[in-house]
Nucleic acid binder design. Sequence first.
DNA 1: CGCCGAGTTGAACTGAATCAAGAAACGTGG
DNA 2: CCACGTTTCTTGATTCAGTTCAACTCGGCG
Lengths: 196, 196
Amino acid sequence: MECPNFIRFFTSNLDVQESDVSDLLNQCERLTIKKNYVLLNQGEFSKHTFFVEKGLLRQFALNENGKEHILSFAPENWLVTDRDSAYFNQPSIYSIQALEDSLVVLIDQSFIDKLTQLVPGFTAYNNRLLHNHIRHLQDRIGLLLSATAEERYLNFVQMYPDVLMRVPQTMVASYLGITPESLSRVRKEIAHKKSE
Amino acid sequence: MECPNFIRFFTSNLDVQESDVSDLLNQCERLTIKKNYVLLNQGEFSKHTFFVEKGLLRQFALNENGKEHILSFAPENWLVTDRDSAYFNQPSIYSIQALEDSLVVLIDQSFIDKLTQLVPGFTAYNNRLLHNHIRHLQDRIGLLLSATAEERYLNFVQMYPDVLMRVPQTMVASYLGITPESLSRVRKEIAHKKSE
DNA sequence: CGCCGAGTTGAACTGAATCAAGAAACGTGG
DNA sequence: CCACGTTTCTTGATTCAGTTCAACTCGGCG
């Protein structure tokens, strides 16, 4: 079970031997999961970060009123963590589920520690990932605060054209914070504009 | 010009001498600014992180349509950074402005580096701050995706009772992503409910 | 005293939600 | 490979939360 994406993810931006990462990878648990399989349920604990080698995951929550909203999609080469659980010993707010048959690598703290030891630049790299993630979340907040459903959808199309093609529209709607019906109408409206 | 909050912020959770932090503080620029003073303008660059020793800042953006939205409030003991500018060499998306007469400490990369050198646990602490920040942003996204104006306001009241008392309602509205008029009505509604 | 910005209130409007019903696409087993 | 049930998408009618615009109140401050 090869994991070329994983190897590339940790070697391409870091000064480290492929063989070293490969060794570390071999110490990690790997999971081949079917579409719809739930890796982590809301309320459970997990110290793992999931690296998506192949397939597509989503991280989502059900709120009090039974509405579900999607925090993130994670296609190949993405990392998904439940921070509440992994770093703050709190039950997870989000569930993590496969939207396609997937292959994920389970990373834990010891992997991070070993990589930190092995690669001088890793801490900085990791920090950079976190800062980038923060920027991304801030952008999304900005959109939610001041963009219409249509603008948010167009932004999504531009940012994640790949994901768009791989998930049902319902889920895109849930990511954007609108109903599937509204998304359908928004799309119709856009198509209509284009054909003029 | 003493900065007890600053000292406490970096000593209380870290295994480091007060005198060491104090020395580092003395190498940092400090700014005493008046209400409404703009520390950073949208589009500018700044490699600094601002630590709020006293007073209150806000981080906000004006979008295309001239609408302003507030990304964050920063009262005493908060850190504010423009990540685009500080870590990714991009012009800042957000402006940073004082909402009260304030005293801020300007932290730069060399401060971080020195503290990292000096205090073994600092990297982990810093990481923890970042993860916590991410959680916070995720929570906000969750609210924006599925809570009503009233629910968002009540959440704000609970989370930031202090800020609530210190800023004009207009700004709270802008943080929540609603108009000042709507906020006024929401508050009226809540008061009405309580008096029953 | 008079101005000015912040907050409130009202009336009309609008973007998106809801509810309900069909149509299309999809996968699974015979 | 087709038939059937299930999920996904579309469309329509109605409702509703929140916006917009405009007028008015209130408290502070020169």
